[in-house]
C-alpha cells in the first residue's frame, strides 16, 4: 500500500524534482500544474498529503485550499504549502485554512522536504 501524495506546482522542473525525491522514498506521486487540476486530481486520487504551490495559473494555491476544505472527504488531507514568496500576508491567509507547513522552496533542500512530509504522515 503506497501513500498517495499530490504535488500541485506550475513549475515543471520543481514538480519533477519533488516527484523524483518522493517517489524514491516510496510514495505514489501525482502532479497537477494548476489549482483547478489540483482540485480534480485530489478528488480523483484522494491523497494523504498535498504539496501545494501558491502562485499558479487558473487557480492559486490558497483558493484551491479553501475549495478543498469545503469537501468532507478532504477534511483530513495534510497540506504543506510551498512558495517562493516570503510575503507574510500569504502566510496569514493560508493559516486561516487549517494548520499546515509553509515552506519557502529555495530555503529547503529536498531531503528536508521529504523529512517534513514523513513527519506529517507520521511514518
Amino acid at each position: 500500500m503506497f501513500t498517495k501524495i499530490l504535488i500541485v506546482e506550475d513549475d515543471v522542473n520543481l514538480a519533477k524534482a519533488l516527484s523524483i525525491s518522493l517517489a524514491e522514498e516510496g510514495f505514489k506521486v501525482s502532479i497537477a500544474y494548476d489549482g483547478l487540476e489540483g482540485l480534480s486530481l485530489a478528488e480523483k486520487h484522494q491523497p494523504a498529503l498535498i504539496l501545494c504551490d501558491i502562485n499558479m495559473p487558473k487557480m492559486d494555491g490558497l483558493t484551491m485550499l479553501a475549495e478543498l476544505r469545503k469537501n468532507d472527504w478532504a477534511k483530513n488531507i495534510e497540506v504543506i504549502m510551498l512558495t517562493n514568496y516570503s510575503d507574510q500576508q500569504n502566510i496569514s491567509q493560508a493559516l486561516k485554512h487549517k494548520a499546515f507547513n509553509y515552506l519557502v522552496k529555495s530555503d529547503w533542500n529536498l531531503e528536508q522536504i521529504v523529512e517534513q512530509v514523513k513527519k506529517k504522515l507520521v511514518i
Binding site: 513549475d11 522542473n13 520543481l14 523524483i20 517562493n84 510575503d87 522552496k105
Partner: peptide
C-alpha cells in the same frame, strides 16, 4: 515580486536537481 518569485523558482530548480545528482542514486 518578480525577483522573489521568478528568480527563486529557477534557483530552487537548480538546487534541487543538483542535490538529486549529488546523491547519485
Amino acid at each position: 515580486s518578480i525577483v522573489s518569485h521568478q528568480l527563486r523558482t529557477p534557483l530552487t530548480g537548480i538546487r534541487w536537481f543538483t542535490e538529486i545528482l549529488i546523491k547519485n542514486k
